[in-house]
């Protein structure tokens, strides 16, 4: 199984552990991820709220570069990049007028020939849940996980074609192959405030407090995420949430790839589990998941 790989800017800096664990897990499963040469930032929210053509042209540039890998599908880990790439492909495939403008801006001919998939879809659908289960050598029985999807993986379904918009279950299914138990909770698709982390930190703290509280009330011991922005807000800002709202959250926020890696017996250092602000190490040792 061979895919072009789009890490995105966060996976090369603030969420390096997502990149590390995604690659470790994929290698173990025989999934080849070939980095798209000279990939470009997707433009994220600042592009789509400022200039429409630019917000489509930047992702298309990376999709064109991905063709050089020889793979017909690009694997993406970041939910925000995933959203921008899927939306660009959608416009190219469904709106000839927009497609012409995008191609003129990029200075190349692109017809939507590179499919975009999130790593969760690749694991659950292409690799298969049963096959995945067979690779779990160090079962995480007894671990209670709240799977947090956030916004951009699932919305809007018309374009993302990912999972149910209100109650997605794909990450729960993937995480449960490890033997862990996922909790039923109402915060799955709530918003963390994402790009307002820097500009409107107060809003982000309020939203993260709610998400942490909902997960905690549902009996979760940790939160699983598939987006670097969700992870940063819930992890990096957790001490501030505690201070502002007089809370004592000590909730590890792990990438689903780190949870899979642990259940495959991959060394925790290779999964970047020492890179979190709310350290999961003591908790994982207490659960006998790591030594």
């Amino acid at each position: 199984m061979k895919y072009a790989y789009y890490p995105g800017c966060s996976l090369h800096s603030t969420s390096r552990e997502y990149d590390m664990s995604a690659k470790e897990v994929s290698t173990r499963l025989g999934i080849e991820l070939i980095e798209a040469p000279d990939w470009v930032c997707c433009g994220a929210t600042p592009a789509h709220v400022t200039m429409h053509v630019l917000s489509q042209a930047l992702p298309v540039k990376s999709l064109i570069n991905a063709k050089q890998t020889g793979a017909d599908t690009m694997a993406v880990c970041c939910a925000a990049c995933f959203s921008r790439l899927k939306i660009a492909n959608y416009h190219v495939l469904n709106d000839p007028g927009k497609k012409a403008k995008i191609n003129r801006a990029v200075g190349a001919e692109y017809n939507g020939e590179v499919a975009v998939k999130h790593l969760l879809e690749i694991l659950a659908k292409d690799f298969g849940l049963e096959n995945l289960k067979g690779k779990m050598t160090a079962k995480l029985d007894g671990l209670k996980v709240a799977c947090y999807y956030g916004c951009l993986l699932v919305r809007p379904r018309k374009i993302m074609q990912f999972d149910d918009e209100e109650n997605p279950t794909i990450m729960d299914a993937v995480v449960e192959t490890t033997g862990a138990k996922t909790v039923d909770w109402p915060g799955k698709v709530e918003c963390c405030g994402a790009s307002f982390s820097i500009t409107k930190t107060g809003v982000v703290l309020r939203l993260c407090r709610d998400i942490l509280q909902l997960a905690s009330d549902a009996g979760a011991e940790c939160i699983a995420v598939a987006c670097p922005l969700c992870q940063s807000n819930l992890d990096l800002r957790q001490p501030e949430v505690n201070k502002k709202y007089d809370k004592k959250f000590d909730m590890p926020v792990l990438y689903f790839t780190q949870i899979l890696g642990l259940a495959m017996g991959i060394d925790w250092k290779k999964l970047g589990l020492d890179k979190h602000i709310v350290s999961p190490l003591k908790f994982l040792k207490g659960k006998n998941i790591i030594k």
């Binding site: 709220v49 916004c151 919305r155 918003c191």
Partner: peptide, 9 residues
Amino acid sequence: CASCITCTV
């Protein structure tokens, strides 16, 4: 607006 797209869906 945080562009979470909840309104749209």
